[in-house]
Design a protein around this nucleic acid. Structure first.
Lengths: 139, 139
DNA sequence: GCTGCTCGTTGGTCTGCCCAACGGAATAGA
DNA sequence: TCTATTCCGTTGGGCAGACCAACGAGCAGC
């Protein structure tokens, strides 16, 4: 049962990383949003949702939380009254780096039994699967 | 970001299989329980939980649903007043086979971009990761 | 101007996983 | 034998992630 393996190991991954985030007082959505903001710069909530694959409504909720924590600033877009522009703050960048460190540690733990070349193989195989399905669902 | 790949492909897997189950009017818990009953025969809820990795409380709820659908029978264990013996019915076996067919189809779809040998590699790598962590968490 | 679309928001649903507590029942140990 | 511990099923709750429906406000095309 190959997909059983995948879902099982995915579960382990999610649990390990979930614990990681819990230890960092954050959630997966938070990290994904912070990372995307750091990579692409300020953006509207809708585009954040598109880039992260998070539903608009969940983006709104997560941005509320991040804003309340001071990691992010929500300001209206002067050029388009519908949009908010979300900007990463300095504190947000610090938090992102903190979370990234935690995530890397969790990954090392997760893939500990694999040699570097095996990790590469695994990544390549998963990327292949992903690319295929993203290609189907495109956007 | 290797774990990103894993969680992402896991998401795809979960979604595809989730849709599969939804199409079959079932849930993951149902299939896992039916499959375990078919493989090991009648068992108490506690042992089902241990074998499937499902929490006792969730086993109780899922067995309620399966019993209401007639896929399973819950009877007291004459030898141990604490236990219920859960038995797969003929209808339950039919349902299990139906779900297995659906799951196999979903798997084929999921791993479509991979050659048979690549599938084998992927399975081996995941198994290695899993074995390591199961070994840690043992039981 | 009207229509159709986007955007943010609210408020739900569902699945999977987990925990705490309880009473009834069985078992181990003094 | 009697007590303490453990096990079992059940109830009830919580949390994260993903999703969907609807609405009002705003923009853009015709």
């Amino acid at each position: 049962m190959p997909s059983w393996l995948l879902t099982q190991s995915a579960m382990h991954a999610q649990r390990i990383i979930g614990e990681t985030f819990a230890a960092g007082n954050a959630r997966g959505y938070h990290y994904r949003l912070l990372a995307t903001l750091a990579e692409y710069g300020p953006a509207s909530q809708a585009s954040l949702g598109r880039r992260t694959g998070i539903d608009r409504s969940d983006v709104a909720a997560a941005i509320n939380e991040l804003a309340e924590l001071g990691y992010v600033v929500r300001s209206p877009d002067p050029a388009d009254g519908r949009r908010n522009i979300i900007t990463l703050t300095a504190a947000g960048e610090v938090q992102r780096e903190r979370l990234e460190t935690l995530v890397r540690a969790a990954q090392d733990e997760l893939f500990a039994p694999l040699s570097p070349s095996e990790r590469g193989q695994l990544a390549a195989l998963l990327a292949k699967v992903l690319a295929h399905h993203q290609g189907l669902a495109d956007r």
